[in-house]
Structure formats: structure tokens, C-alpha cells
């Protein structure tokens, strides 16, 4: 097995782990983390795809994907914080 194939398979496994946690994890924060892990899995597959030919296009795709992931995570966390704020204000348990 070549090195890049090993990394490709690890990327797919990360995607699977993230998928499981996204569905099964009980808390929002864990779900947000799980989506991020899925994303990292896909990025790893892309980087491993680029490796044998040192292809810059997947690298550019990963950089774009990272920015998108940061933005999406920030949005998710802000929604989470606002829900908690509102629930703390109204006195109900989250």
C-alpha cells in the first residue's frame, strides 16, 4: 500500500467517524465538532489525492474548504450561544 493510499483511507475513516458522531452525539457542540471532523476527513482525502503528482488544485480546494468550515462553525456557535442566552434569560433549562 502506498503512502498516499494510507492517507486517503484515513481520510475516509475520519469522514465515517464524524458521520457517526453527528448522528449519535447528544449535544450540539459535539455535533458541530463532528461536522468539522468530517470536513477534515474530506480535506485529507483531497491532499492525499494531490500528493503523487504534487497537484496544486486540490490544495487550493482545501484552503477554500477550510475558510468555509471556519465560517460555518462560527455561525453554528453563534446560534448556539444565542439559544443559550435566550433560555438563560427566560429561566428555562437548556
Amino acid at each position: 500500500m502506498t503512502q498516499d493510499m494510507l492517507y486517503s483511507i484515513c481520510g475516509l475513516l475520519l469522514f465515517g467517524i464524524g458521520l457517526y458522531r453527528l448522528i449519535a452525539a447528544p449535544r450540539i457542540l459535539l455535533k458541530v465538532l463532528a461536522v468539522n471532523i468530517q470536513g477534515v476527513g474530506v480535506f485529507m482525502l483531497l491532499v492525499a489525492t494531490a500528493y503523487p503528482h504534487s497537484d496544486p488544485v486540490p490544495h487550493a480546494m482545501v484552503l477554500t474548504g477550510i475558510v468555509v468550515a471556519v465560517a460555518a462553525t462560527a455561525l453554528a456557535l453563534s446560534l448556539y450561544c444565542r439559544i443559550h442566552e435566550l433560555q438563560a434569560g427566560s429561566g428555562t433549562e437548556p
Partner: peptide, 28 residues
């Protein structure tokens, strides 16, 4: 059930990627 589903999906993908072999040369 979730774990089994996720594992089945992942292993299918792994097998397909593994047997498809090396990646194409792409746009390099």
C-alpha cells in the same frame, strides 16, 4: 444501528477507493 450504517458506508467507500488504485494526474 447508526454505527453499523456509518461503518458500512465508510468501508464501502474505502474498498472502492482502494481497488480504484492511484489517483489520476489531475490538472497538475
Amino acid at each position: 444501528v447508526c454505527a453499523a450504517g456509518a461503518a458500512a458506508l465508510t468501508l464501502t467507500l474505502v474498498a472502492m477507493v482502494f481497488f480504484a488504485g492511484a489517483p489520476a494526474s489531475g490538472l497538475s
